[in-house]
Nucleic acid binder design. Structure first.
Lengths: 340, 340
DNA sequence: GTTACGTATGTCATCGATAACATAAGCTCA
DNA sequence: TGAGCTTATGTTATCGATGACATACGTAAC
């Protein structure tokens, strides 16, 4: 290009803005951070200079000097329901964004603690101001404790280190409500297709199921275990379909319920005429299953926003555990038993 | 605490490590970055000191001095399919992680360009080294161009600014393949439930549908437009169910297909006996729809990893557009027309 | 009319890693 | 053996914003 002399395309710095506006760099800093002690007139000049130069503040420098990155880390598990992961990501990002925080994510591939430690280290390296752990891991290692002691941490539906606060949907209640619904319809027994036992929410939902049965004086049948996928629900459904007196099933997730229903249908068991089924999550497709699923709604978006709020409000609050309630959406996959 | 004197809990710095290891800070830096010119012996001493002090490098300082943040930004749209968003996030994060990059996300709530600009600015402020835009936005504004000129950018299934490279699944081909499948089965006409027209993939899939019909010498009926949700599919399905000669439908997403199928069934039209339906995505639940959906598989995970690879390999490659092919999964929602 | 205080702004050192340059030691080859 | 190169390490300046402190001015109070 034969243009006029141009500076070597360096991003303008605060000093450049200061020079243009005829003030000091510190004043620019103050003006941009809405410090009270700046004349409106000065602020206007600074903002004009910012606009003119296309100035963009350098986050790294800010972090280095102030020690705070205005970034929070989010740890997610790669497997498991797509739906909940997407909802959690969106919820965290929205709440963080509103508070002026960026979100850095770390996805871990499996539930082992080594991966978990590496992810936390990675986020710690980035200098995040806080961490939301959305991994339903039960065991917590010493190294994880080390990191969560240094950085404020909130676990979402997961295990609690002694230094992290936690928040979650009341999964046990979700399991109890689902099971109660079936019992209230007149079913004498409720079978359960559970999630993997390492998952805390799977365990809690199972406990809720057991609790509801116990309260009704019913001995729980052995639970069948899936891996959250529709496919695993299908496999367990093939087993359930072969047990004659099954009239009611509580599946630990909508996706597994889809699989269970297909297996039952293939074996000639109609839903809800022969077998009622209730599950948990209320994903968008739940209403479009055939039949539409009765399911316990989980507001991931809301609970994850709440997790961020909890994280940002600091330790002062003294709150260490928050529980978000779950509510039942009754649709067409449940009905009274035929012979009741 | 009446413990012995402890330093005021400051994170150890490279200088501390250097002192402990008996070398200079620069050598520590080199050792940790696997610079070739470090004696194995020295490196060992440094690593031992790192271990002993629990040293963790300060990313902000690194960014400030090297100008590179080892972070890439990911821009996502909050609405639209949960499934694809989760898959894209996972794919980007995995590929980035493998290359030693962190991922910072910015979700935008709506398709307007103002939000888009703000998200890009936010990422630019954070000093990301590159940006993956997974937003199927068509219009591109000047401000967006400004940012994508400064920072390497790859768009995933989206619009191309002149400065961003792009990569995507061949959506037009996906639409063509889906439509051809129905025509090959003997259907004389194929109706279409499209995605929102501002979405590039919706538009391309529609074009593929039109192309396939044109190649067969068939005039395309007016497309019906949904918003990707199962609910919108249901509403359009109620219209289709009232048109007697509809025997084949191409839905632009699996989720909408679920809705269409339910509406058809409620109106007594059987799938696939009366109406065949094919869609796009191949989400996990597609095989558990009733009937199981014939659908065009989209490998979001792979294409998003590829996007990161494209981003990181730099401009040198000269590649500006990569297209990932799509493949058909034939299941039970399509069949030859009854009277053919 | 001096003291005291508040407000607006400037100066300087600092955060921690790194690039650029400097140095010292070891090696090769004429 | 010493010029010339390579390799390992040290020294110094630097990135850009900010906290702590300093200064200059105005205004209220005695």
């Amino acid at each position: 290009m034969t243009e006029a002399t141009e500076r070597p395309a360096r991003q303008p710095s605060m000093a450049d803005v200061a020079k243009t506006a005829g003030v000091s760099a510190q004043t620019v800093s103050r003006a941009l951070r809405n410090s009270p002690n700046v004349t409106p007139e000065t602020r206007k000049r600074v903002l004009a200079a910012v606009e003119q130069l296309g100035y963009r503040f350098n986050n790294a420098a800010r972090v280095l000097s102030s020690g705070r990155s205005h970034t929070i880390g989010l740890v997610l598990l790669q497997s498991g329901g797509y739906y909940s992961r997407a909802a959690v990501t969106a919820g965290v990002e929205a709440a963080a964004g509103e508070a002026g925080y960026a979100v850095s994510i770390a996805t871990i591939a499996s539930l082992d603690t080594g991966m978990m430690e590496r992810s936390l280290s990675k986020l710690a390296d980035q200098g995040v101001d806080g961490i939301v752990i959305a991994v339903p891991l039960i065991s917590v290692t010493r190294k994880m404790e080390d990191i969560t002691r240094d950085i404020p941490t909130v676990t979402l539906d997961g295990s609690r280190t002694s230094s992290a606060r936690s928040l979650g949907i009341d999964q046990q209640e979700a399991g109890r409500v689902a099971t109660r619904h079936l019992l209230d319809l007149g079913h004498r027994q409720v079978w359960h297709v559970a999630g993997p036992d390492e998952w805390i929410e799977a365990r809690r939902r199972r406990q809720g199921w057991q609790q509801a049965l116990a309260e009704a004086g019913i001995e729980a049948p052995p639970p069948l275990e899936g891996d959250w996928s529709p496919d695993s629900g299908y496999r367990q459904g093939q087993i359930l379909a072969r047990i004659p007196d099954v009239t009611a099933v509580f599946a630990a997730s909508d996706e597994m319920a889809f699989g269970v229903i297909r297996a039952l249908r293939e074996h000639g068991r109609k839903v809800p005429d022969d077998v009622s089924i209730v599950s948990v999550d209320d994903i968008a497709l739940a209403a479009y299953c055939c039949p539409p699923l009765t399911t316990v709604r989980q507001d991931f978006y809301q609970s994850s926003s709440a997790a961020v709020a909890l994280l940002l409000e600091g330790d002062d609050a003294g709150v260490t555990e928050v529980v978000v309630p779950a509510s039942l959406s009754v649709r067409a996959s449940t009905a009274p038993p035929r012979s009741s």
